[in-house]
Design a protein around this nucleic acid. Structure first.
Length: 404
RNA sequence: GGUGGGGUGGCCGAGUGGCUAAUGGCAGCAGACUGUAAAUCUGCCGGGCUCUGCCCUACGUAGGUUCGAAUCCUACCCCCACCA
């Protein structure tokens, strides 16, 4: 379990296969974000049909609502949300960054003022592990301290060092949870099995056996030495079944992100999946894959989709524009998604103007498929030994059509 | 025919003497969004120019009062409601 093997490489780029309790992930792969246990707007079947192999959930959000005890009582996040494939939960570390102004960071942990009801909530490395354990994802993420991309050396060092200290605590608590196993000591329902559908919330049989691994997160901002120190410190604390790179795409220019990836890549274990957190846009995926990244996640496809912005190989399309009023063409004639298969731009525009929720769903679905397809195409090219030419052609087309 | 209400920028709709090229909303245009406090947010939105300002045109039409009018007065045109 949690094995990773390389299937092909081309320079730094890799195609791999990752075994997780709920299934196999063929990389490179994009992981749609499902913060509240749902990829916003989309039915799990639609996400599956779009080709997703693994999706995310969020510790902070699910802790606030409905509470991890509810998720656990209803069979864990997989069964709760009816997602049969692998799941990864983010630790709440990103909220340390994004909820600036609503949180207070201390060595012990982070105190958040709940954005829901104003109540004070504390997240620590230990509680993040416990929540993620209760949620039951295949992969739990370390609770880290993310700082803005333009942070100076001192702040970046502080976040990086703290993330390492917290990593020790995460690892310690996670190991205890793994050793203890399922809380009730009973045999749970096997992972991936479907429940009877009517298990009562407090039934021991509704509580699944959990098989979960923990991935650490490299920090250090844009500072080369800090990044390398973070990586070295992380590897000392290993072994790990996967390694994440965090704190990128948080305000720094893209070339800087590329540079950091290039500096880290030679030092990353070849036989472990690398996950670039929170990234990204279509070109970020291609650039990341070329620099040795295996896994990505990003809210952009669904958020931008809800905002009416669609990625296409001929540039970005804002579906609300009046110029699409009578447009019978699909969002992207080259796309094989369920939206492009049957809906015109004119209809999609109509849905947005009428504020019909289907519009948000359809464009989100298109964007999700657009990113998943990049992973599939890159993998196919890697296996075929044509990665560099594929990358060149993709980039020329994408950037040649107005995307920068 | 009578009485009352009303005609404001592409549309709806505030504004009843100077601070009004005129609040808002919609539509339109442009932009943002990267481990989701986001089906959200920002800017522009009469025309022209030698563009941190200036000049035109503008609140149904035509006159008038006033230093000054979308705002007050007169006439006319049109719309709505009710009564005949």
């Amino acid at each position: 379990m949690f094995d990773f093997r390389l299937d092909a490489t081309a320079g730094a780029a890799r195609a791999g296969t990752l075994d997780l309790p709920h299934g196999t992930v063929q990389t490179p792969a994009f992981m749609p974000v499902g913060t509240h246990g749902t990829v916003r707007g989309l039915h799990p079947q639609e996400v599956l049909d779009a080709g997703a192999q693994i999706i995310l959930g969020n510790t902070y959000h699910l802790h606030l609502r409905p509470g991890e005890e509810v998720v656990r009582a209803l069979g864990g996040l997989h069964r709760f949300s009816s997602w049969p494939k692998p799941l990864l939960t983010d630790s709440g570390g990103f909220q340390v960054f994004s909820l600036e102004g609503l949180r207070d960071i201390a060595e012990h942990g982070v105190t958040f003022k709940s954005h829901l009801d104003g109540s004070m909530r504390t997240l620590t490395p230990e509680s993040s592990m416990e929540i993620q354990w209760a949620l039951g994802a295949d992969v739990a993420m370390a609770f880290d301290h993310v700082v803005p991309g333009q942070s100076d050396r001192a702040l970046a060092a502080e976040g990086m060092e703290r993330s390492l200290r917290w990593l020790d605590r995460c690892r310690g608590r996670h190991a205890e949870l793994v050793a203890r196993g399922t809380g009730n000591g009973e045999r749970g329902m096997g992972n991936g099995e479907r429940g009877t559908g009517n298990a009562i919330p407090d039934s021991p049989f509704s509580i699944p056996r959990i098989e979960q691994t923990l991935w650490p997160i490299i920090q250090g901002g844009t500072h080369t030495d800090l990044r390398l120190r973070s990586l070295a410190g992380t590897l000392e604390r290993g072994p790990w079944t996967g390694i994440a790179i965090g704190g990128l795409s948080v305000g720094e220019p893209k070339p800087v992100m590329h540079r950091v990836l290039e500096e880290l890549e030679p030092h990353l274990p070849k036989d472990r999946p690398r996950y670039l957190m929170g990234v990204g846009f279509p070109d970020d995926l291609v650039e990341g894959i070329a620099r040795g990244v295996d896994l990505f996640d990003c809210v952009a496809p669904t958020r931008n989709g809800r905002h009416g912005s669609a990625w296409t190989m001929s540039g970005r399309v804002n579906i609300r524009k009046a110029s699409h009023r009578l447009d019978a063409a699909p969002l992207d004639p080259d796309c094989d998604c369920a939206t492009c298969a049957r809906f015109s731009r004119g209809y999609l525009r109509h849905l947005f103007m009428a504020e019909e929720m289907l519009g948000l769903r359809l464009v989100s679905l298109h964007n999700i498929r657009f990113l998943l397809r990049i992973g599939e195409q890159a993998r196919a090219a890697l296996l075929a030994g044509t990665f560099e030419s594929w990358r060149r052609e993709w980039t020329a087309r994408y950037h040649g059509n107005g995307e920068d």
